[in-house]
């Protein structure tokens, strides 16, 4: 464990909690892409099946359980409890265009052709594009609530910090995972446009406009 990975995980946890609390307290999921949240639930489910097979550490297990729990709770709030506030018209990204290529790629390029490893690879590839429906929805509505922008900032920051974690681990441990690194770079690059706006627009004053 290193400072980049720990702050990355905490940034990820913050993003997940910010979104869950926002929907719960405002009793509304307006401006939130349910499709992205379903993709994240799939990402965690396929990546954390090793909860059933191997124990790495209490931290590892706790975080995985929290991530999976919050992801499904968020999907439940969007599609069940506050379904009336779900903006389906603007959440129109064709996720099959993400899931199918990612599924194919995970079968072709992986570290080991075993079910668990292919699912892990699928999860890594899917996570790198899972935010696209949300970014697409914001571009369609032309704005995002301030809280939503903080959610996206923390979410984007987490994988950027992981890039530094991988540099650290390569330098100090000689460890590197090319699949995770390449997908992590793609994932972080997708946020660049958003990061630029978040930093330059001084968002705290008005809603995010493209």
């Amino acid at each position: 464990m290193n400072v980049f990975r720990l702050t990355g995980d905490l940034s990820h946890l913050a993003a997940i909690i910010i979104l869950l609390l926002k929907i719960w307290k405002s009793r509304s999921c307006a401006g939130i892409s349910g499709k992205s949240q379903i993709l994240f639930a799939i990402v965690f489910t396929t990546r954390y099946l090793d909860l059933l097979t191997s124990f790495i550490s209490l931290y590892n297990t706790c975080m995985k359980v929290i991530y999976i729990g919050c992801a499904y709770a968020t999907v439940y709030l969007i599609y069940a409890k506050f379904r009336a506030t779900y903006d389906g018209n603007h959440d129109s990204f064709r996720v099959e265009f993400l899931v199918v290529p990612v599924g194919g790629l995970s079968v072709l390029i992986n570290h080991d052709f075993s079910p668990l490893e292919i699912l892990w690879t699928f999860s890594i590839y899917l996570e790198s594009v899972a935010i696209l429906p949300q970014l697409f929805m914001i571009s369609k509505t032309g704005e995002a609530e301030t809280i939503t922008t903080h959610y996206l900032f923390c979410l984007g920051l987490y994988r950027a910090l992981y890039l530094f974690n991988w540099i650290w681990r390569f330098y100090f441990e000689g460890f590197f995972d090319m699949i995770a690194i390449v997908a992590g770079v793609v994932q972080t690059v997708l946020y660049c446009d958003f990061f630029y706006l978040y930093v330059t627009k001084g968002w705290f004053s008005r809603p995010y406009r493209l």
């Binding site: 990975r5 790495i56 991530y67 570290h111 668990l116 992981y162 590197f176 995972d177 090319m178 995770a180």
Partner: peptide
């Protein structure tokens, strides 16, 4: 790339 007990990162 894989540790013997799978992946140790979240």
């Amino acid at each position: 790339a894989m540790k013997d007990d799978g992946h140790d990162e979240l």
